[in-house]
């Protein structure tokens, strides 16, 4: 798996990018969930590697992370899990910087990137690593052909967007709102403003933070996004389900619903030149 696999996932129209926490509530369940998400229409799968202090995540994902840690998820088990997965959608690992650093004994992050690439991880999102601190990780990702996905926030200034785009690969994660992750009931006005502010470039823009319904996905794509990221809605479904099977069903259904929203936006769209790709 490689950077190109991530980018290719956006080639046939806007991509659906669901997120779940690995090991929530067990590694076996996660395997089933990832497959269900792929069946539901996921183009890229964002798989959270749980860290004890998830400062960029809201209450729903914090709880998922807590469940995964309590169930014994570790970076090594995470990579075993990824190795065992049998899905075509590229896997993007979302985690915090300290776990990458400790995999290399607190000294370096290349060991993690190399091992992750070997296990089948195609990309990394590290929400507590701003572009200023990312030189070492960027070099390791370039060396091992792993996409380094950065987040662009509503507060990000044009100068920062430029700096971020210089370092980013795979796609750019556009944070639709202020604050932390979490499902909301509407699509933020900030979303459209965020997309409008971004320059046309080579990388796809995927919008997330708050996506939970078909209409959100549709509205985001209509707003010009190349992809839709949704996390809390899936983590919630896992928390509420009574069995692995019913959770997998719920995930498949929700993924299909969001994928349908994306498709609806596509078919409604009046033909116009490609905006951002």
């Amino acid at each position: 798996m490689s950077v190109d696999d991530v980018t290719a996932a956006f080639a046939d129209g806007p991509a659906l990018i669901p997120y779940v926490v690995a090991g929530d509530p067990s590694a076996d369940a996660t395997e089933a969930y990832v497959e269900a998400l792929a069946e539901g229409g996921a183009d890229v799968i964002e798989l959270g590697l749980p860290f004890s202090e998830p400062i960029a995540d809201g209450p729903t994902i914090q709880e998922g992370i807590r469940r995964a840690l309590d169930a014994g998820m570790t970076p090594a088990r995470y990579l075993d899990l990824v190795r065992d997965l049998d899905v075509d959608a590229p896997i993007v690992c979302m985690t915090y910087y300290n776990l990458l650093l400790q995999f290399g004994d607190g000294d370096e992050v290349e060991t993690f990137v190399e091992t992750a690439a070997d296990a089948g991880v195609s990309g990394l999102i590290v929400p507590d690593l701003p572009v200023e601190e990312s030189a070492e990780l960027e070099a390791a990702c370039a060396e091992h052909d792993v996409a380094l996905i950065f987040i662009v926030a509503p507060t990000t200034t044009p100068e920062r967007v430029e700096r971020i785009l210089e370092r980013a690969s795979g796609f750019v994660y556009v944070q639709a709102r202020m604050g932390t992750t979490g499902a909301r009931t509407d699509v933020s006005e900030d979303t459209y403003e965020s997309l409008d502010r971004l320059p046309e470039g080579d990388l796809p823009y995927a919008v997330g933070f708050g996506v939970s319904e078909r209409e959100h996905a549709k509205a985001i794509v209509e707003g010009g996004a190349d992809g839709v990221v949704a996390g809390s809605v899936f983590v919630d479904a896992i928390a509420e389900a009574e069995s692995t099977e019913s959770a997998a069903d719920a995930l498949r259904e929700k993924a299909a619903e969001l994928a349908a929203g994306i498709d609806a936006a596509e078919s409604d769209e009046t033909p116009e030149p490609e905006t951002t790709k």
């Binding site: 910087y97 507590d128 701003p130 950065f150 987040i151 926030a153 971020i164 604050g179």
Partner: peptide, 26 residues
């Protein structure tokens, strides 16, 4: 700033700015 920023607030190997992008402008 872009030239100095990589060394912002470093004490030897320690310090730095490991925060979510949304906070960086602040």
């Amino acid at each position: 700033r872009s030239e100095t920023v990589t060394d912002a607030g470093k004490f030897g190997r320690y310090g730095g700015q490991y925060v979510p992008e949304v906070l960086m402008p602040a």
